[in-house]
């Protein structure tokens, strides 16, 4: 556990003002064979902060999340959650909503959401069941608790996956383009849902997206990754007050900054 004490000291000089960042990534380099997916990436996300990561496809956005969830064991540099290295169990505090729904085809929506329940919660317990049903309602799928994924549209399936991520009650929730399959109206709705959940639970959220508007609307800070291999181009602070209006002047400014950094 020596390592656990390490990051707060080291990150004291960067962005974390008080009790150390929830997510600390330092000099992260990830290679797949000869391909460098991420090159010396630094990222610190404070407890309760909402950070968006944007970048062109192939810049390693998803790889960054995979490292943080503990799915990639081999990398150089450091990645820690609440001061615990992701390879030493730090990833247990992380919940992930994948880009694809990744649902169990044979299980109904309720059972799929229950997969996200923490290990010490018995899915058969009435309280757990209520919580699952509540989450199904939160993502706008009430009435579909007994449906199988095959009966759902792509956007609905993605929302089941979102509910599963929320059921986990993670300290850090990672989302990999969770709204990209949704139509505009549902997307707005689910973005606001996510903000509500984030506010209620005080979770730390890192959202990967290629949607500049989404990043600016949701996040406190937007990390712009640039091209191959992925490196941090710039970090844009979104200064708009919450709750935000989508037409807020400050959001437009942030969007312009992000777009400039992306070089479009």
């Amino acid at each position: 556990m020596d390592e656990a004490d390490d990051p707060p000291e080291r990150t004291g000089d960067s962005t974390a003002p008080t009790d150390g960042p929830a997510l600390a990534v330092r000099g992260l380099t990830k290679r797949y064979g000869d391909t460098v997916a991420l090159d010396e990436v630094d990222l610190a996300v404070d407890d309760g902060e909402f950070v968006a990561v944007v970048g062109p496809s192939g810049c390693g956005k998803s790889t960054l999340l995979r490292v943080l969830t503990g799915l990639e064991e081999r990398f150089e540099g450091r990645a820690a959650v609440d001061g615990v290295d992701v390879r030493d169990g730090g990833s247990d505090a992380v919940g992930m909503v994948f880009q694809e729904p990744r649902l169990l085809a044979w299980a109904d929506v309720r059972e799929n959401v229950a997969v996200g329940l923490p290990a010490d919660v018995d899915p058969g317990d009435p309280a757990a069941r209520d919580r699952v049903d509540g989450l199904i309602e939160t993502v706008g799928l009430d009435g579909f608790a007994e449906s199988r994924p095959g009966e759902l549209s792509g956007g609905m399936a993605q929302r089941v996956s979102l509910a599963r991520g929320l059921a986990y009650e993670p300290e850090v929730l990672l989302l990999d383009e969770p709204f990209s399959a949704l139509d505009q109206l549902t997307k707005y709705e689910q973005q606001d849902n996510l903000l509500d959940v984030w506010r209620e639970r005080g979770a730390t959220v890192a959202l990967v997206t290629h949607d500049v508007e989404e990043a600016a609307y949701l996040a406190d800070r937007v990390v712009v990754l640039g091209g191959q291999p992925g490196t941090v181009e710039t970090v844009v602070d979104v200064e708009a007050d919450r709750p935000r209006e989508r037409t807020d002047e400050a959001l437009l400014t942030a969007r312009r900054e992000i777009t400039d950094a992306l070089g479009v």
Binding site: T69, G70, M96, F98, E100, R102, V115, P118, A119, Y168
Partner: peptide, 16 residues
């Protein structure tokens, strides 16, 4: 592999 990763991320454990 996608589903195995889901089980891993949500800490289902070997048996579960």
């Amino acid at each position: 592999e996608d589903l195995i990763e889901v089980a891993e991320v949500y800490d289902l454990g070997r048996f579960e």
